[in-house]
Design a protein around this nucleic acid. Structure first.
Length: 551
RNA sequence: GGGCACGUAGCUCAGUCCGGAAAGAGCGUCGGACUUCUAAUCCGACGGUCGUGGGUUCAAAUCCCAUCGUGCCCGCCA
């Protein structure tokens, strides 16, 4: 560990930085420190050298299965992510959301929070009223195509697209009739009518069921699907509207109730009640967030950068309503676009996440099969293994590619780039895990039971590569801490890469099971491999990337 | 037009919040390493005015100002 304090102390001490560094080094009594064995200066910099106790404690800590988990904070946090409208198949444009969202939830869980994963279901908006009308109006014969896949959302989205096309291009009188029907569905929902709710649910539940199945492939799973109609039915939206009208910022313009937020640095008015008396997504989301504040200590939302303005309006309005919004944090990401433009469910432009995952698995399978031929290790992978590895690597590569980048960077989707299995991708890190497992299995260590350390003695870590690896292992809990504080799981991805490098160097230079490696060197190195395995397995777990036992 | 983000090697990206050692990886190119715990690996070479111009500082990719380029937003949609 290095420090540059000498630069700042120099002025105070009236000495040049190198001299200041030397004086600080002199003042530190290493004998009083447990984890520091020496302090050296290098010009103006101070370097603290880790002691053998530091190495030994790290090794002990990391051989625990839970290594990297921080102590329980007794603090609950709800992570809302994805929340895609239940209108059709999940496409790649918004695939960043479940991948980043799941990793954010994971990293918070590792950091000791009690995490709930929520998907907020937009089942009260105009889109769903349109969908419901279309589903009830059109027949299979009216649809232009076969479903692209045998699953509900692929089947039903055809009604949605047909309906939207009809509203845009259909004969005027019919469109008017349709609009009236759509309007009546929305009014019904707003009034909390059981019948309207059931009609919409018929569509929502089916489509959402399919979308869940797709997301489960990542896997991104949720503790709760929170429907926005819930906040109409329980009366909280009405209550909220009443409170909003009382605010100083409330204005009634063009028959609609709005909030003028210019005093709070937002030019755009927030409309919270339409002229027809129905609420808007934003209105219900306010009720939703007040509910979150009641139920949880913190609320994190992962959303696209195109919702940034709405996010600011939401926060500002919640404050005007008397809420403390400090517990609310938003993680923003930029949408994935195609070279030819945006992806859209309504227009049917875009690449389905299912297709991307299928292609990833199929390319991974090809890769496994090619490598199978000139494989050194004679562990006889069977069909099942090939299948397992293809899934772990294929899906892992997609997730890793997404989660390892800063969410704010724009991405243009390209097949070959998204499905690159080369170094600095998931397989590179996964391979390290497989190597660890290979060595442990070869040594007869029960992977489930773990390893009995006995007396660890750091003096057997005589190589620089072994020490560097252990130092890298030691950083893991700190990485979890920092990534969770900043809500940036990509920090963990960067770490896995650095870890893999350190491990591979160790692997090259320090044989574990060679005949010339005697006791206790062998045991110490084996413990280091066990520690490495837990570290990389847990780091991958944060990212939601599978850790294969063999590849 | 206004607001917000992004701009680092030919390409894809870390590093920027919280300023400090010669700016790091991978891909690609070139050259090496499988009788050795799995070569989806490793080693080496080549490759950078950190968009541009100012400023602050002992010190700037990092902070401030300006400017250019790209993306997103500015609906009684979500």
């Amino acid at each position: 560990m290095a420090s540059s304090v000498a630069f700042r102390l120099a002025g105070e001490l009236g000495a040049a930085p190198p001299q200041a560094a030397a004086r600080v080094a002199e003042e530190i009594d290493v004998d009083e420190l447990t984890y520091v064995s020496g302090v050296e200066t290098q010009g103006p910099y101070l370097n603290f050298l880790p002691s053998s106790a530091y190495y030994e404690r790290t090794l002990e800590a990391a051989t625990a299965e839970t290594y990297g988990h921080l102590p329980d904070r007794e603090e609950s946090v709800v992570v809302e992510h994805t929340s895609a409208n239940p209108t059709g198949p999940v496409h790649v444009g918004r695939a960043r959301n479940p991948i980043i969202g799941d990793a954010v939830a994971n990293v918070l869980e590792f950091a000791g929070y009690d995490v709930s994963r929520h998907y907020y279901v937009n089942d009260a908006g105009r889109q769903l009223a349109v969908f419901t009308w279309a589903y009830e109006t059109f027949d299979e014969d009216d649809l232009e195509s076969e479903p692209e896949r045998d699953r509900e959302e692929y089947d039903l989205v055809r009604y949605y697209r047909t309906g939207n096309a009809f509203l845009e291009e259909g004969p005027g009188a019919d469109v008017e009739k349709a609009e009236a029907e759509i309007e009546s569905i929305m009014q019904g929902l707003e009034a909390g009518e059981e019948e309207a709710y059931e009609r919409v649910s018929e569509v929502v539940d089916q489509v959402l069921g399919g979308m869940k199945a797709c997301l489960a492939r990542l896997p991104a799973e949720f503790d709760e699907f929170v429907k926005e109609t819930r906040f109409i039915l329980d009366g909280s939206t009405d209550d909220l509207v009443a409170r909003l009208k009382e605010l100083e910022a409330a204005v009634y313009e063009e028959d609609a109730w709005q909030l003028d937020l210019t005093d709070h640095g937002i030019e755009k008015n927030l409309v919270f009640l339409r002229s027809d008396g129905t609420s808007l997504y934003a209105t219900r989301d306010l009720a939703h967030h007040e509910w979150k504040f009641e139920e949880y200590d913190r609320a994190v939302t992962v959303l696209g950068e195109d919702h940034k303005l709405q996010a600011r309006q939401l926060r500002t309005t919640l404050e005007l309503l008397g809420n403390d919004t400090d517990p609310l944090e938003q993680v923003l990401y930029s949408y994935v676009n195609l070279p030819e433009g945006k992806m859209s469910t309504r227009r049917g432009t875009g690449i389905d996440l299912d297709d991307l995952l299928d292609e990833a698995i199929s390319r991974a399978r090809e890769e496994v099969e090619t490598r199978l031929e000139d494989r050194l290790r004679d562990d006889d992978l069977d069909e099942e293994d090939v299948d397992r590895i293809a899934h772990q690597v294929g899906i892992g590569a997609v997730r890793y590619d997404v989660v390892s980048k800063q969410p704010t960077k724009a991405i243009t989707f390209e097949w070959d780039r998204a499905l690159d299995f080369e170094a600095q991708s998931a397989p590179y890190v996964q391979y390290v895990h497989a190597r660890c497992c290979g060595i442990l299995e070869e040594a007869g260590v029960d992977l489930e039971a773990g390893i009995d350390l006995g007396d660890v003695d750091a003096t057997h870590l005589e190589t620089a590569a072994a020490r560097a690896l252990l130092e890298t292992i030691a950083r893991f809990p700190g990485v979890v801490e920092s990534a969770s504080e900043d809500l940036q799981p990509h920090q963990v991805a960067t770490y896995t890469r650095e870890f893999a490098e350190a491990f591979n160097t160790f692997y090259r230079e320090c044989p574990v099971l060679d005949d010339d490696v005697g006791s206790p060197l062998r045991e110490t190195r084996l413990a280091l491999v066990a520690a490495s395995r837990h570290t990389v397995a847990n780091a991958l777990a944060v990212l939601g990337v599978a850790a294969p036992r063999s590849m």
